[in-house]
Structures are given as structure tokens and as C-alpha cells.
Design a protein around this nucleic acid. Sequence first.
DNA 1: ATCGCCACCGTTTTT
DNA 2: CGGTGGCGAT
Length: 736
Amino acid sequence: MNNDTFTTTGDSMTATVNLDELNKPQRKAVTTMDGSLLVIAGAGSGKTRTLVYRVAYLLEQGVSPEKILLLTFTRKSSQEMLWRAGQLLNETCRRVAGGTFHGIANMLLRRYGHYLGFGSSFTILDRSDAEGIMNLLKGSLGLSGKDRQFPTKRVLVNILSGTVNKSIDLDDLIYQSYPHLAEHIDDIINLDKHYKEFKFNNGVMDYDDLLVNWKRLLDEVPDARAEIAARYSHIMVDEYQDTNLIQADIVRLLAHEHENVMVVGDDSQSIYSFRGADFYNIMRFPKVFPDTRIIKLEENYRSSQPILSLTNDIIRNASEKYTKTLFTNIEGDRKPYLFAGRDEREEALFVTKKIAELRSKGLELNTIAVLFRSGFHSYKLEMELNSSGVEFEKRGGMKLMESAHNKDLIAFLRLRVNPFDTLSWNRVLLHLDKVGPKTARKITDFIAEAENPGLALSEYPCGKTWEAGITRLARLFKDMDGETKPGVLYEHVWNYYQPLFEKIYRDDFPKRQKELDEMQTIVAGYDDLQSFVDEVILDPPEVIARDRSGGDTERMILSTIHSSKGLEWDAVFVMGLADGRFPSSSAGLGEQWEEERRLLYVAATRAKKYLYLSYPRVIMTMDRQFKRVGMSPFLSELRAGLFERLDSDGKRDTTPSFLTAQDFPTEGTDFTKHTRKAQKINLESDELQAGVSVTHPFFGEGVVVSDQQGRSLTVQFYRHGLKTLHLDYAKISILQ
DNA sequence: ATCGCCACCGTTTTT
DNA sequence: CGGTGGCGAT
């Protein structure tokens, strides 16, 4: 047999894989048989390809597909990976277990949950559910009221899940990441307690509980660990820099016995620290698995040299990095372009015009993408694209299942799966005439006592005016009671919901109905309702724009940078690169600042041939004022000559790429950000040694317990106990 | 006390 | 879009 090709033999297929298609380090990563493997891979270096070839290789070596576990960050990337594998391997790849951490956790908990004392009947909460619960709890805790300045629900959800993701105490977390909320700390701790109780009482789990319980299963239950470990002999993890501590622990526990584990990641692309991702996981990996072989992939197969030069320069300015300079053999001399619009509208017009130009050069719409920091940065552009008839799909904004009518419908289906799901009951009951929050609450409390809440509904002593509604609802649950086929259940629900639906959305229900029809097709495709409900939460389908004839067409992608990860396009626009918008004004200093820089790096490295950067010179601030702004500091740090400026007509600017006075912030801009790094170093070199008395605006007075390690410091506070503080955030000062 | 409806506001990033 | 506050109706 030729050394460079191998043939896989499965039940129904033979496929030949040519290792000549890989470069040397890739080949090494693919053909290493046993032991732990860390692959540090730059942007566009063929990570996915390497993983897919490795799956093929393992199968060829006789590893059974069921024994391979492929953990990826997004379900999309695992699907794409398995699809690519399908090109090589036909059917066998379907039997490879691949999915997200959360998806696999769900699967395992349904199967082995009895070890932890809960059955398989739990429902999963998505983010907006969690926000809804915050709302209910805020009311019952008396936290609402206009004099009470309280953080938004989304922030609250972040805070509560942050304790799991970042594995620290709630008060430490608030202090480190949300210092402005420190005065509400008691309320938040209270809320956390009630939230946990709520989840326990209603048989629901949130995203974090899936991971926590998976870890508990491996950590605390030897029998379960043995069963699960025996299931998978080869573990592979993609995007390892985006895992948090608990996920790293899970990987460690899964691979503990055999150490056949391969992780792939790029520290320069770590952009999820707000969710607890910690790229030090990569650095720690060789310590956890001592015989780790490390392989670097530095050749870029995606972008042309001028684009690569720019992206290398973006990351060159990072304060902390692991040197890795990418090179490419792809030819091309087209420099990235930079455009400054007078305002957001001009920027949008520029993008629209350039898109038309690219299309006239023969680029298909689906090879073009526009990326931005936050969902709402593209509003102006969306209007522009709509009026010029360009089809596009927006990612990272509102998901199909997040709109009210879809959630209404799903609430019924969820109740069929978990009749004790108070949140869904609340949603369903509020649609009844004359039933508001108070009445809904009374009803939920009443039926929660019953064995079958759906059937108990008809026994509720209700007033005459709204008896009819309750009766109708009770009949629906009676009809659904014995039924298990998802398609039929949907029919029942729709019969009930349709009149309400048409009343609520009188003005635009035909449009919404199309979405519901789409959902019906999806629901009917499932064998059991449980897996539909799970998947809709773990992997919500996106809203897909259809053209006027109703068929699928080529669409351009508009996306937040976060959702563009792992993808690539021929032409990429990165818009909204203005100071205060990128980095986001709410990004703090230190590590958060660096993360924003990596975010720009991720955005720019999505481009294969064309890269356009743009920003508006005037943006509207939160108080509806127009404000002059300069370009993002990340751009002004770049070396001259790496990009080409375009003027308002989109033609080449006669002046070379240097910065004009207009590019710098004029008024109202805080320059302290740029000098903060120096202050940080000063703070670190201070004498914060053991025994020194310090004071802290929130924790009060205390004594330093241990010498600082890295950027953290342990302090014993008289009133709040032992705390670990980060020098980047803590406002501590030394007491004389 | 509770519900229904209208007008206004403010948006990081997400499995 | 989804909250939130105000106000009139029940």
C-alpha cells in the first residue's frame, strides 16, 4: 500500500484519502495514533480539514466510529465537519458522535441522569427563558419599582451563569466584572438563590446546568464515569481556546483513562471570555496530559498576502500573545481598503455600492459577507440593501424561535413534555381573556399541586367571564394527553392557537404564519417531541429571508463577528470600526481590551481575496446626540501602507495611506484608555506583599495574604472574608 | 385590585 | 423587538 494514501473499509463503502493533500505538520496531526495531542493552529490553516482527515485515519486504523467523540463549539461546525467527512467517508461518518458540549451533555444526562437522582424529564431553558424568570422573580422579591435602579435582565443572566463559567463566587464576579452593581450585591445573591430554587421546583435546567451535571456525573459517580469513558476511546475537541474551565475538566475526566485526546485551537482567536472561555486552557493542556505532543500549523490556506500582512499587524500589537506568524502561498496584490463615511448612511451606501461592483466582477452573493461588532450596527445597511433589492441573511440577531408567536407555540409543546414548566404555563395563560399576571399565577399555583396539571385545569374555580377560555384550554390538554406523534400534537395546538394568533397579530399575521408553517414541517419531521424541544433550544434555526417568489436564492451574509467564527468568504466588509463602537464602549481595560482586538483579528481573517474596512465619522450616541468620532484605535495603530484609503466616491484616494487630523477623535473622547497600560504596570510593581494592609471601596479593609501571582492577589477582608482580586479591575489602595 | 392598551425607550458578544 | 409606565375600564 502506498504510504501516502489509505483506504477505509466500512460496511458499505471504500474511500481513498490522499495524505498528499496535507502539509507535513497536518499529516503528523492526522496520523498520530495514540496519546494526547495539542494542535495550535492559526487562522485559515486548515483545522477542520485536519480533524476530518484524522477521523478518516482513525477509522482506517480500525477504530469503530461509535467510539470517536468529536466536540465542537457550534453545532454548525460539527455538521460542516461531518459533512466534509462525508465527502471522504460516505456513510460511516454518520456514526461518529459529534456535537456541541451542550448537545452531548443533554444526550448523556437523559441517559445517565438517574445516577444523579433525576429522571430524563427535564426541560432546558434558553437565554430568553432565563430572562423571563428574572422578571417573575424580580416581582416576587419586590425588586421592581422606578426608584430602584436595577440592571437589565440580560446582565443578570450573565452574572448568574458567570459563576459557573468562571468558577468563582458570585460576589467576586460582581466585583471583578460588574463593579458598578456592587451596591446591589445582596439583591443579586438573593435572586441567585431564588433562581436556583425555581429551576429545581420546575424541573428545568439552563445551559450551565447541563455542563455542571455532566461534570458531576463524571466526577462524583464512578459507575457513570466508567460507562461513559468506555463509550468513547478517542476524544477530539475543536476551538479549544473557547472552552471554559468546566469544559476543560470534562475533557480531562473523559480522557483520563486512555489519554487519546486531541485538541485544536488558536489563542489569537479567543473571543468568548465573557462567557468564561479561557485560552489558558491551551497552555495548561500539556500539564494535564504530560505526554502531549504539540504541533503548530502556521501556513494559511485562506487569504492573500496583503490581507495576511494586515491581520498579522493587528495581532502584533497585542500585549500578550504566543508568537505565530502566518504565511501564505496564495497570490494576490490587492491591499485591504479603508473607507471613512461622513455618517452611518454614507458608510452603508459605500458598502452597497461596492457589493454591486463585486457582483459585476462576477462574485456570487453568497461569497460576500458584512461583519460588525453588535447586531444593531447594521440597521442602516439593512435598509439600504432592502431598497436596492439585495437578498441577505442576518446571523447573530434574532433567532426564529425568539419571536413571540413561535415561542407561544413552543410553550404548548413544552408543556406536553414537562407539565410542570411554570414559565410556559404563564405564557399560555396570559393569552386568555381577562387573565393577567396575577390570575395566571394563581392558576399555576393551583394546578402545580395536581398530578397532571393539564387535566387539573378544568377543576380550577374560575370566574364566569373567563370560564370559556379555560374550558377551551383544558380541552386542548385533554386532546393532547394520549397523543405522542409530534405532527399530530402540533395540529392540536394550532387549532387552539390560530384564533388567538390572528387576533394578536391582526396587521401582519400572514408573514408570521409562513414561519409557523415552516416550524410545522420541522416538528413533523421528529419522532418524539422531546428531541424537538431540546434541539430547538440548543440549536435554534435562524430566520431565513425568502425572495418574493418564495424559493431559496443566493444570499449575502450579514453577521456579528462572533457568529462568523470559523467561516470564510471571498469578500468581507468589516463596518462600524469607529472609536467607541469598536472596541465596544462598554469594554473595559486590560484583558477585555485585548479581546476586542482579537475580535477584529477574527473578522479580518475571514477574508480570502477582498477586505474592506469602514467606519462612520459621526455616530448617534445613546442620548440621541450626534457625536464626531475617529477611527478605531486598533486601526490607527496599524503600520502605514498595509491598506489603501478610498474617498467618498469609492475611487482610490490620491493621498497614500496616512492618517489625517479627521481620523483622530476631536472631542469627548477619553484618551486615558491608551495610557492605562502603564498605570497597570505601576500597580503591579507596588509593594503588595503579604501582611500589607489595604482598603477596598466595597470589601472594606483587609490584609494581603499571599504575594501576587500574575495579576491576582489574595486578600483577607475583615468583613467579607478571603477574596481573590484581579489587579486589572480591583481598586485597592494601601493603608498607611 | 386587576386587566388592556398605548406610547416611548434602549439595545455587546452566545452555547 | 420587548420591556415599562401611565391611564382608563372592569
